[in-house]
Design a protein around this nucleic acid. Structure first.
Lengths: 338, 338
DNA sequence: TAAAATTTCGTGACCAGTCACGAACAATAT
DNA sequence: ATATTGTTCGTGACTGGTCACGAAATTTTA
């Protein structure tokens, strides 16, 4: 009784067909030089003819690597970050595993990554505060790169200088003559909101100004971000807190704020100036187009994946931090106060 | 000379430590009933103590499955689709592999999926026209579910009825009194634009109306979508084609159109009515809030992953097509023409 | 022409699990 | 007390690759 399942050909099937030993087939599979050019060609032809595909389970078992890079996202569900990241990973011949986790499930996620023999980890976790050695210990030796601005880490990361970005925004508003500058931001447990909030505070108090009202929302999803912007403005108005300009944590928050201002008959930029961060695709198409600080996600993704690949291939890779400096794109949402 | 690498404990290490055979350990690992309750507990304790994690490569090799579900996206880079999908996949104990591909690389992607012994495939490929048996042949027996409205397929898919959705939109505009209804859509090779375009055409000609101008853009990314809406309106105005209402293929296209109309001093809905599809988070926060047909991505993702899991676990699963019927959400972007 | 060096390839051990088979022992039925 | 049944567990074969070692064949050198 023969097994009639449509089994895939193995390395030994190919060897038999080609009249060589399985070792030789393994060699052509791994581009090992110890094989004569014409036998290599012959075997490659046979493999193509039989539709041979290497069994990745077996390969994992012996080599302890999986040709997978895992992209772990924590506490944030933008989605948009992934597609380009995946392109860079796949272009390098790896597959992309995507995981979301919370602070509690983080250790499990990393354990599973180790069990999967993942070759590298890209981490996007703007809320995660962790000592380098703790993170390394959890990673089981898997190379890791953070796609974040992580001031206190000596591991490899890529991110925009948040203090500098905030300074651009605040200075622009001050130059225009604004003295009551509000902010609508996210949880101060997140790195970026925290850094921007602190910078905002520092710059204004350095000018002898009272920091304008501050609203802490949630920008972990697009829908929440818009809602936070909307509710932030409502909170300011309800509490009667004066402001002539608002700095929002991203463009979608600005969109919500814009809508709320409009509902109250406040015009941007005539009555209120609005500045945000990211320069998402929507920013130039809001009415009025948004003054914002472009954070190029694509560049960050490209650099992060590039550094990770270098780290994977170079056994004595030296971690380094790549700080990007943003510009300010001035559009029509800012103007001197009346 | 002992190997001092920090090797992970194997099933046999656990067995030795627990004083049983490796077969027994394998049994507790797989919840096999043939093991006494107290030995099971004992072994579980040992495993926890040693930090044992099953080697997934070895498991793949013998079981021919990987506990991975692959989400393949083709020709489209929304990104937003993924996060929720991943949650459902992960909640079922699978890892999520994310791949993007084009029509050319599709076969390779599926071959690689087979080599990875992926347990199931979720396919989001609104542009892919392929006969069921061809698709099945490419899948190497891996269960597959499409997250799409694929009229001519008897395989499993989930999607909103596009003709019905279009009818809602057009009927709404007709009821308001519009007679010159334009459309800004995407490539007619895509299933949804094609079906909507045809329905738009049919309904208007059935009313004895001349179909309004049509612009074919590209909504494969958010940025392109907005730009297409913008350029569509410009094209209409430049060519002097009259219209009192526009049906756009999604909310971001509508956003671009809104911006272009505003630039030309045309007010929505006073001068032009605007309707779109999706009800993305931005739709209620545009000015004016957008009348649109909500396509609940979350439901589609949940159903698609649910059907896939059923198909994976049930050997004689019968494929079926799940058609969702949308509503129309009327906001402030539509009004009778002047 | 023989010795040495190089190229090319076969062999076997190994990776860490799974699973069918049957043995040992205890529990129940006759 | 013996036969039968059921529970629990050990054993060995197997999955499909990788890699080090050494043998044969071929080329280069003395």
């Amino acid at each position: 009784m023969t097994k009639q399942r449509n089994k895939r050909p193995t390395i030994r099937d190919v060897a038999r067909e080609a009249g060589v030993s399985y070792g030789t087939v393994s060699r052509v599979l791994n581009d090992h030089p110890d094989v004569a050019p014409d036998t290599r060609l012959h075997i490659q032809r046979i493999m193509a003819k039989m539709g041979y595909q290497r069994n990745l389970g077996a390969q994992m078992l012996t080599t302890h690597q999986s040709n997978i890079i895992e992209f772990i996202v924590m506490d944030v569900y933008f989605g948009l970050v992934l597609p380009r990241m995946a392109q860079y990973i796949n272009a390098a011949g790896y597959s992309t595993l995507y995981s979301e986790c919370t602070e509690e499930s983080f250790a499990d996620t990393l354990n599973k990554a180790a069990a999967r023999m993942v070759d590298g980890i890209l981490l996007y976790a703007p809320q995660l505060h962790i000592a380098d050695q703790d993170l390394l210990a959890m990673c089981h030796g898997i190379p890791i790169v953070r796609r974040d601005y992580v001031l206190d880490s000596k591991l490899t990361w890529v991110g925009y200088n948040q203090e500098y970005a905030t300074r651009l925004v605040i200075q622009h508003l001050l130059d225009l003559g604004h003295r009551q500058i509000a902010e609508i931001t996210g949880s101060l447990d997140f790195i970026n909101p925290r850094l921007r909030h602190d910078t905002w505070l520092d710059l204004l108090t350095a000018q002898g100004l009272e920091p304008g009202p501050s609203y802490i929302g949630d920008y972990s999803t697009v829908a929440n971000a818009i809602k936070s912007g909307y509710e932030g403005v409502y909170a300011f108005l309800q509490r009667g807190e004066p402001f002539t300009a608002i700095m929002t944590v991203n463009d979608h928050v600005a969109m919500g704020a814009l809508f709320a201002l409009h509902e109250h008959g406040l015009r941007v930029p005539d009555d209120v100036s609005l500045v945000s961060f990211d320069d998402d695709a929507i920013a130039p198409y809001l009415i009025p187009p948004l003054t914002t600080v472009p954070f190029d996600f694509d560049i960050q993704n490209r650099l992060a994946s590039q550094f990770l690949l270098e780290q994977i291939n170079d056994p004595d890779y030296k971690p380094h931090q790549h700080v990007l400096m943003p510009d300010l794109v001035i559009r029509q949402s800012t103007r001197p106060p009346k």
